[in-house]
Design a binder for these strands. Structure first.
Lengths: 392, 392
DNA sequence: TTTGTAAGGAAGGTCTACTAACAAACATGT
DNA sequence: ACATGTTTGTTAGTAGACCTTCCTTACAAA
């Protein structure tokens, strides 16, 4: 074997260079914030607990937990709930609990072109106030103003301290809340989060609607840590969860699967249809809610089922490589149940199992998303919980 | 809109429950370890630097960096290189550098069924010693003993302190170095890392060979942080990098794309062939090195190119959903260049661009892997660098 | 009543990184 | 030649964060 051209050896003289990622230093206070999030996360997921419970769960000592809880009590995020009712051996525990109804989150969903939906929510996702504005056709700065006004009204109507604002929008959105590209609102490089923070004086988080849905399903809907949530509405999108974290991708466009080609000339029983994007045979031409309705309109239930199953098989074909490459635990379908939760979903499941090796397809679950139409709002709330409190 | 069945609201009484991941507490010493890795990582990627350089790069103060460097000097991981040659304004800087040739890593590659390849490497991936054992047919415990003996010999032949052992093996391997399933060696649930650590008294890291290749390409080969490295050899595998981290997947089987179905009855110009896995039309039946050689044997160069292009199109079809879902920056092909680096690679690239939306396919790169046949060994070394020094 | 167990708090110690201040060593301008 | 400004690396002191150890409180079980 010739080793002279070893590219590793060739680099020995000069160091191994790479575009350095902004790896952040860690200060003691960051450790503190992390452990604080651990405590909050425990209370969020497990409910009222004693300090000793939290200590066991987090691995921190009781002393440290007491200290953190004291700080949280002072902040008002946590409340003393008195002694635990059930009594075991030893000194009875005093419970502390997250004051989830004593803090509010303002959330906005921009998925609907005609109407902007907003709400005030508690930390556990209960809707306290609901508002909407009809902003048909508003684009550019006008659309930003629309969102601004809605947020302001919601903040005013919140009866508790508002922890932050979460916004779910279609389009390509970067981690800093800048809308890189959202054709439906005419936003290109719009610094939405920064602008709203300036106006409202509150932390604002913005993310793609398919991604927020995925977050919502993970936090409130029991989705697995390695999952794909396919959202079917006017278009088709997806949120990807890998190891419990949202995948954003190189250009912040992860999950944009609506315009993957799935219908070819040689696809049995199908003809590629033109897509709004200018190409043909895109997933959206067969799987979007309008496309599904159009394709099943006027058919007998049997024929409609067959049609839906056919679409399910196409989706399954497309997802099989994704499921295999990431070894996903779950594929969730979010959208109209009358279209998705039947032969379509079953066809996706069987196709995925047929087209992947057993170790991949064996314990893969294909199910409907657990959350209803408020999933995007709930996910927007998770943006805030995650960003401000570290709860995931 | 009916909101009564809101599953979020329904959960308000009980807390939001989920399978808790082992979220680790962070102690001051962990912060220290993290910052230490930051210093080492800077020296690894940027080469000899002054303490002030490191401080600017990491965001830590010069005082802290001096302290960390002092500790690393005491450990012998870093050396004082004297004053910088070029002189600028101000006090001349004293350079410190990673003593990459003064420490060794022992690496083993188990991809070859007939021979086990091993090497002693420096921290920058230079091969110092090369050894191999012919272990045709060794399985189960005998195969473990084979690896054990090879490691021991390599450790003995290492002329510098050995930081750890890295092993690259086909099969499904969990994060703790347990081989869940490796049919070629007859390993099922084999705790390889633990066993070797016990015998050698050194830190041992084990990972799937496609994954180690991906790590090697990332660290030594300049691969992007969001990339897929497709490895073509006896079979077909892949390593997935998302945000610079290896994806392991729900059942540690991420990257197992060799048995995704890519050939159907309706695939133009192709007939599904039976696969060793018992199904038909798997990616391995067309893309493995033997399959490619068989399909192109005896053909004119033009016909061979057409055949390779056809396989490239099939691969492109399979990868388009993956590239879209994750918004990957790069797809790397690792394997025989005479088969892959031509019409096949070009077909993959054009197919991917044709079948994805512009925002996804626009700046996607499809190229050959930068590292040669030692890529797996280099990746195994990265396992150790990453696990012991925190360098990625 | 005694014993054992568990919860929570107080005191003291160690570790970590920061700020402030300074000396050393050099380039540059007058 | 000499003062000035710049950059480096170190010393000293401070604040934060978590730990270990010990104590008190409160209850169940024997």
């Amino acid at each position: 074997m010739s080793r002279t051209s070893n590219p590793i050896a060739a680099r020995t003289a000069s160091p191994v260079q790479r575009q350095l990622r902004p790896t952040a230093k860690v200060l003691p206070e960051h450790a503190r914030a992390h452990n604080r999030s651990l405590v909050l996360g425990h209370l969020f997921h497990e409910g009222p607990s004693s300090r000793a419970d939290i200590a066991r769960s987090t691995g921190l000592t009781r002393v440290t937990v007491s200290d953190l809880v004291a700080a949280l009590l002072a902040e008002g995020l946590v409340a003393d709930l008195g002694v635990r009712a059930e009594s075991r051996v030893g000194k009875p525990a005093t419970l502390v609990g997250l004051r989830s109804s004593e803090h509010h989150v303002v959330v906005v969903d921009l998925a609907d072109d005609a109407t902007v939906h907003g709400a005030v929510m508690t930390l556990v996702g209960d809707v306290v106030v609901r508002e909407h504005v009809t902003g048909a056709g508003a684009t550019g700065t006008a659309a930003v103003t629309l969102v601004e006004d809605l947020c302001r009204r919601l903040v005013e109507r919140a009866s508790r301290p508002v922890i932050g604002v979460g916004i779910s929008s279609p389009g390509v959105i970067d981690a800093g809340g800048r809308v890189v590209e959202a054709p439906n609102r005419g936003w290109y490089g719009e610094p939405l989060a920064a602008r709203l923070t300036g106006v409202l004086g509150l932390p604002v988080h913005v993310a793609n609607d398919a991604n927020t849905r995925a977050l919502g399903e993970y936090t409130y809907g029991g989705a697995a840590a390695d999952a794909m949530i396919v959202t079917v509405g006017q278009g088709v999108g997806a949120g990807m969860l890998v190891d419990g974290a949202l995948v954003r991708g190189r250009g912040h466009a992860a999950g944009e699967i609506g315009h993957v080609t799935v219908v070819d000339e040689d696809t049995a029983g199908e003809t590629p249809e033109p897509c709004a994007c200018g190409r043909t045979g895109c997933l959206e031409t067969v799987l979007s809610a309008p496309a599904l309705r159009r394709r099943t309109a006027g058919l007998t239930p049997q024929d409609a089922d067959a049609t839906l199953a056919s679409v399910g098989r196409m989706l399954g074909r497309a997802l099989a490589p994704v499921v295999s490459a990431l070894n996903l635990a779950e594929v969730l379908l979010s959208g109209p149940p009358e279209l998705l939760d039947g032969s379509l979903r079953e066809a996706v499941a069987t196709t995925l199992r047929d087209r992947t090796m057993p170790v991949i397809g064996h314990d893969l679950r294909v199910r409907m998303a657990a959350l209803d139409e408020d999933a995007a709002l709930a996910g927007a709330a998770v943006l805030v919980l995650s960003g401000q409190l570290g709860i995931t």
